[in-house]
Amino acid sequence: MTLTVDQVMELAPVIPVLVIERIEDAAPIAEALVKGGLPALEVTMRTPIALDVMREMAKVPGAVVGAGTVLNPAQLDAALEAGAQFIVSPGLTEPLGKAAIASGIAFLPGTATAADIMRGMDMGLSRFKFFPAETSGGLPALKALAAPFNTARFCPTGGIRFETAGNWLAEPAVKCVGGSWLVPKGPVDAHRIEELARAAASLRG
């Protein structure tokens, strides 16, 4: 089933941003996150095994697996071939934007400035990642950007923690946030990941 970008953003208040180093960790992490109430899983294309991780996570019932850190049309094609149900990029270029729109995939391009948002809107986009959220001026900056672009909605990502996520989610222009705190470094502790996911899933603005 093809999901719209709004449907992906509404699955849960937090989209886990995942950097997975070992293929055997993929399924246990996905199972714990889904069980905890976070079905949308962003697998970043930062490791050589990212595509294989996506394929493994997609086998987990209830998981909606997407590709993050997609930089160009070639990576987009690879992610689509691996079964990605949504695409997240750190920025927005015309080649990637046009290719993503043509594919019909749910697409969250990264924006940090008014010019970024205007470029996306010129392409017909209105749903964006705000990245890197904290170092791009934080919540005050997003509020300032959201005012003139009142039809745009955002998924802030970058530097957001559990303790601050609720503040972001309380902003009407924010539909969800991206979080990297859900999977602590080290050996996979499925129970702990599920606990963190349940806490994150309970966050509502």
Rank of each mutant, 00 (worst) to 15 (best):
T2D: 12
T2I: 14
T4Y: 05
V5F: 02
V5T: 07
Q7T: 10
Q7H: 12
V8I: 15
L11N: 05
A12G: 10
A12P: 12
P13E: 06
V14W: 07
I15N: 05
P16V: 08
V17A: 14
V19W: 09
I20P: 11
I23Q: 13
A26P: 02
A26W: 00
I29D: 10
A30P: 02
A32G: 00
A32Q: 02
L33Y: 01
V34M: 00
K35R: 15
L38V: 06
P39N: 07
L41N: 10
E42I: 10
E42D: 13
E42F: 11
V43R: 12
V43W: 14
T47L: 13
I49V: 15
A50K: 04
L51A: 01
L51D: 00
M54C: 08
A58N: 00
A58P: 03
K59F: 01
K59Q: 05
G62E: 00
A63F: 05
A74E: 15
L76M: 14
L76D: 10
L76Q: 13
D77V: 06
D77T: 08
A79T: 07
E81I: 09
G83H: 09
Q85V: 01
Q85C: 04
V88H: 03
P90S: 06
T93A: 06
E94T: 15
P95E: 03
G97H: 08
A99E: 13
A100V: 03
S103A: 13
G104V: 05
A106C: 01
A106M: 03
P109M: 02
P109T: 00
T111D: 06
A112K: 01
A115Y: 11
D116P: 01
D122G: 15
M123C: 08
G124Q: 13
L125R: 06
F130C: 12
F131D: 08
F131C: 10
A133P: 14
E134I: 13
S136P: 07
G137P: 07
A141G: 03
L142D: 12
A146T: 04
N150Q: 14
T151P: 08
R153V: 15
R153P: 11
R153W: 09
R153Q: 15
F154K: 02
G159S: 08
E163R: 13
T164F: 07
T164P: 03
A165W: 08
A173C: 08
V174L: 03
V174I: 01
V174F: 03
V177M: 02
V177Q: 02
G178K: 01
S180C: 11
W181P: 00
V183R: 00
V183P: 01
P184H: 03
K185A: 15
D189E: 15
D189P: 12
A190K: 07
A190G: 06
E194I: 04
E194V: 04
L196V: 02
L196F: 04
L196Y: 05
A197W: 03
A197D: 02
S202F: 02
R204I: 13
G205F: 06
G205Q: 04
